[in-house]
């Protein structure tokens, strides 16, 4: 037990240090200007780190698989597609001018329905064949991206090719208006998900044993999946969809968190996945932006690393 708590403490300290550096490095004394700007950005990063890390961990526990992630199965691009569809259906200008918080809630509701549907389809099509399910999920993801691109061009034909071609998530231009709604969602999720930590451990034993030990399996799974959908939507609404064509960020942080947690218990893994994700993003952003002087390139590097981890996981599994 103590070694796990020690790792968590270490990670938390590292995060605090990285955050301090993030806020203060290279400020050149313009504190009045820099601090509020960076504070907002830091908050956005922390929220996204939490949302993606926790949603991926929950998803992996529910599906009993360390390779699956919501992003791999197209959940984040589904959200962008639904967003665009709503704009189209509810009529361009009027909808866009709605209060962003209301828009967010509406999109969230649609996302809940849409993601449940997607999940059902994937389960039915995938069945026992994991590769099949992942492949179908990836293609769905590409489909959502393509049709979103098409719809956007239909609505605004002068949209530039660059924006469409590589929509890598950007922390520099995140959606400020959604910062407080996103914070609310994350804060609301914390006690509710923390309460589930012991029941999540039981999921590790497989479906039959979870039912045997008194978990209301169907209901519990749906409840957790709903949170996965909400968190994915929150992160995507705040900074846009990660990666192209799929994002490996969630996979990367879960793999790292599992390694550093040293246990399968969720009371350690849940905080650890947040800390690892936050550290990666805050530390990475500080490194690239302030130390190396490179542009908005963090997400690209993260996706590169995550893709390698994914390949390693699949190819390694097959050897044994």
């Amino acid at each position: 037990m103590p070694s796990e708590k020690r790792n968590l403490l270490l990670a938390a300290l590292l995060l605090a240090a990285a955050s301090a550096l993030f806020m203060t490095l290279n400020a050149r004394g313009m504190w009045d200007f820099v601090l509020p700007l960076r504070a907002a950005k830091l908050l956005a990063i922390l929220l996204v780190a939490y949302a993606i890390g926790v949603s991926t961990l929950l998803f992996q526990t529910l599906t009993h698989n360390p390779i699956l992630t919501p992003s791999l199965l197209g959940f984040d691009t589904l959200y962008v597609f639904l967003q665009t569809l709503l704009v189209l259906v509810l009529g361009g200008i009027g909808y866009v001018q709605l209060n962003p918080a209301w828009k967010f809630s509406g999109e969230m509701l649609v996302m809940l329905g849409g993601s449940m549907l997607l999940f059902q389809v994937l389960l039915r099509q995938g069945g026992r064949d994991l590769a099949r399910m992942i492949l179908i999920g990836v293609i769905f993801g590409i489909f959502f991206r393509s049709i979103t691109g098409l719809l956007q061009r239909l609505m605004d034909p002068e949209a530039f090719a660059v924006a469409q071609a590589f929509s890598y998530a950007s922390f520099n231009s995140f959606n400020r208006q959604l910062l407080w709604p996103a914070l609310l969602v994350v804060l609301a999720s914390m006690p509710l998900l923390w309460r589930e930590r012991h029941r999540l451990d039981v999921h590790l034993l497989g479906r039959d044993q979870a039912v045997n030990l008194g978990i209301a399996y169907q209901r519990h799974t749906l409840w957790l999946l709903a949170w996965v959908a909400v968190l994915v939507a929150t992160a995507t609404a705040l900074v846009g969809p990660f990666g192209y064509p799929v994002s490996f960020f969630g996979l990367l942080v879960c793999a790292l968190a599992n390694h550093f947690a040293g246990t399968l218990r969720h009371n350690v893994r849940l905080p650890m996945v947040f800390l690892v994700a936050a550290l990666l993003l805050v530390g990475g952003q500080t490194l690239f932006e302030h130390v190396l002087g490179m542009q908005a390139v963090l997400s690209v590097v993260v996706e590169f690393a995550g893709g390698l981890v994914f390949l390693y996981l699949i190819l390694r599994k097959k050897q044994t």
């Binding site: 064949d129 590769a131 099949r132 992942i134 492949l135 990836v138 990666g243 192209y244 064509p245 799929v246 996706e303 590169f304 893709g307 390698l308 994914f310 390949l311 699949i314 190819l315 097959k318």
Partner: peptide, 14 residues
């Protein structure tokens, strides 16, 4: 069979 296109897509994205 289906692992190949999957690995291919990921390889391409890397």
């Amino acid at each position: 069979q289906l692992m190949v296109p999957l690995v291919g897509i990921i390889f391409g994205s890397i």
